[in-house]
């Protein structure tokens, strides 16, 4: 584990160089939140029923946006490693390549995560103010499930990225997963707005533990939801870790290293 933590640490250090990029990238998040603000304001003016107050809805979307980071890097990097042949350097070390990618990208995205949270929350306070009766320790526990969501999303992304071991170009698969999270994971709206049967199906799917359950629990905090979300995330993290390692073990045998 020590070596993976070291990878995580060095990755943070290496990516401080991109600090300006992170700030610029978050300008887009601010614009999205402002668009959501006007859009939902109009919808709420028509007495739409969502199960959330307008203020809660805004915070739901802000929380979701704040930790939906730039995951494109993961599949792009894995595909690039394979296409360029750089993977030759990365897999002949005494560690597991997929765990290397996991801790490397977690290190890259950690700073992004904090900056994104800080900016999004500042915009939320400026636009709709804090939720009445919200206790500080809710935020602390919400941060735990947010981090678990980030880890789960990373593992799912790496699992999908490993398709590059067979087909080199993994972009289409990552794109489909991104859209599933957007529509059925609760990033665009709470999935409780979907038709009942669709909501029921998606409620237990891994992608809803990446956004929906986290944002909902963070906004309407209660211990039952927190425990359900946390346990669901742990189960899915373990499941996808197993899947990721199994796919890698099989895929690496198929590897066709380019560049020499």
């Amino acid at each position: 584990m020590k070596k993976y933590l070291k990878i995580f640490k060095i990755s943070i250090k290496n990516n401080v160089t991109y600090f300006k990029d992170f700030i610029i990238g978050n300008v887009f998040t601010v614009i999205i939140v402002i668009i959501f603000f006007f859009l939902w304001k109009k919808l709420y003016a028509q007495n739409i029923k969502t199960g959330f107050t307008f203020q809660e809805m805004m915070w739901y979307l802000i929380v979701g946006e704040s930790f939906t980071l730039n995951y494109n890097r993961i599949h792009r990097n894995v595909a690039q490693d394979i296409k360029s042949g750089d993977i030759a350097y990365k897999i002949n070390k005494p560690y597991n390549y997929t765990l290397y990618i996991l801790f490397d990208t977690l290190g890259r995205n950690l700073l992004d995560f904090y900056i994104s949270c800080f900016i999004s929350f500042a915009v939320g306070i400026a636009l709709v103010g804090p939720i009445k009766g919200y206790k500080f320790y809710y935020l602390f526990f919400s941060m735990i499930i947010m981090l678990c969501g980030v880890i789960l999303n990373h593992i799912i992304h790496i699992t999908i990225s490993l398709s590059a071991l067979w087909v080199e170009e993994n972009m289409p698969y990552a794109w489909i997963y991104g859209k599933i999270v957007f529509i059925f994971g609760g990033l665009l709206y709470p999935i409780s707005l979907l038709p009942k049967w669709m909501f029921k199906v998606n409620f237990y799917m891994p992608w809803s533990f990446v956004v929906y359950h986290i944002s909902k629990t963070a906004v309407k905090f209660n211990w039952n939801d927190f425990l359900f979300t946390f346990l669901g995330q742990v189960i899915y993290i373990l499941m996808f870790l197993f899947l990721m390692l199994t796919i890698y073990r099989r895929g690496v045998k198929m590897l066709n290293v380019n560049g020499g």
């Binding site: 990878i7 060095i10 290496n14 750089d86 560049g259």
Partner: peptide
């Protein structure tokens, strides 16, 4: 190909490899 971390001095890569 390179195994050194591009934005960091080699000392950091050596420390990482030492742990690995």
């Amino acid at each position: 190909k390179s195994q050194l971390w591009f934005h960091l001095p080699p000392k950091d890569t050596f420390e990482l490899l030492g742990s690995i």
